[in-house]
Amino acid sequence: MDLSMPREAMSSTISTPGRAGSAGNVVELNEVRVVFGDLVALDGLTLSVAPGEIVGLLGPNGAGKTTTMDVCCGLRVPASGTARVLDLDAVKSPRQLRANIGVVPQDSGLYPELSPYEHLHFAAALYDLRQPKARIEGTLRLMGLWDRRGQRVSTLSKGMRRRLALARALLHDPALLFLDEPTLGVDVQGRRALWEHILRLREEGRSVLLTTNYLDEASALCDRVAIMDRGRTLICSSPAELRRGAGVALVLACASATAQVAASLRARADVLHVAESSHCVRVRPVNEAATAQIVAAADAIAKVTSVRVEEPNLEDVFLALTGKALRE
C-alpha cells in the first residue's frame, strides 16, 4: 500500500520543520559532550545526517550510540556543544522536535497484552492524530501486520514486534527516524524484511539514524557509517570508502599447520591482523605491497594451496581504526 495517501490525510495536524525544502542537514551535532558522573558518554561528538540519508552508528557497547540518539531526541541535555535536529534546537524545543521524529527503541517498548491495532490507536492519541483509522490501516498493511492487527503482541514473533515498533514510529509521518538496533534478536528472514522497510523509508525521502552492531546491516542499509568508540566518532564515511581505506584481506588456504602459519604471520611487522579457521588463515597486510612477502612466508611453513583476495568488511575497518575487535 502506498503510504503517501494517508500521510496527506493527517498532515494538517503536524508541521514538519526542516523537512521540505530545507537545504541543511536534518541532524547537526557539533562537539557534543555528555557526562554521567565520572563517565564521559560523549566526548565532543560531531555528526550530521543529510535529508533522505541513512546514517549508521557503529561501535561496541558503551561507545555512546544510544546517548547520541537521546541527545538528538532531546532526552539528554549535553554538557557542552550544540544539537540541532530538523532545524530545531534539541534542548530548547524538544516538544516541537518530538512531534516530527519517530523512534524505535532497542527493546521495542510494546505492551504484550495489547494488539498491534490498539498500539497504533494509542500512538495516534499520543501524537494527536485526528481520525486515524485509515492511517493505522495503511501503516499496518505496509508493515505486513494487518492480518495480525487483533492478535496480542505476546503471540507475535520478534520480527513482527520490531515491525510493529517501526509501524508505531512511522504512524505520525515523521521526517526523521531513529532506529536503535532495529534488527536485534530478529531471525535472518525477519532481518531481510526489516531492511526492505528501512530502505523504503529512504525512497520516501525520510532520513534515518540507526545504531547497529551488525556490520552487514550497516553495509546493506547505510549511505554513511559513523564508527564510534568511547564517545567519539572515529570516522564517518560510506561503507565502500571505509572498505577501500582499510585495504584488502588475504585468505590463505593451507594444507596443514594453519596454527603455525598464523603464529608466524602474527609476528610480522607488515601484518595488521590474523585470524585462523580449520584450513584457512585470514590476513590483513598493512598495505598491498606486502602481499607477496606474506604469501611466501606462509608457504615456507606449510603448503599454501590457494590465495584469495577479499574486500575488507567493516570489522576490518573498525579493527584498523581502534585496534580492537568490534564486540570487545
Binding site: C73, L75, R95, R98, V103, G109, L110, Y111, Y127
Partner: peptide, 18 residues
C-alpha cells in the same frame, strides 16, 4: 519495566498525561 516510559517521553505530550 516494559521500556515504554522512554518512548512515551518521546511523544510531544510527554509521559505525564499517560
Amino acid at each position: 519495566e516494559a521500556g515504554t516510559a522512554r518512548l512515551m517521553r518521546l511523544a510531544p505530550c510527554g509521559l505525564g498525561p499517560v
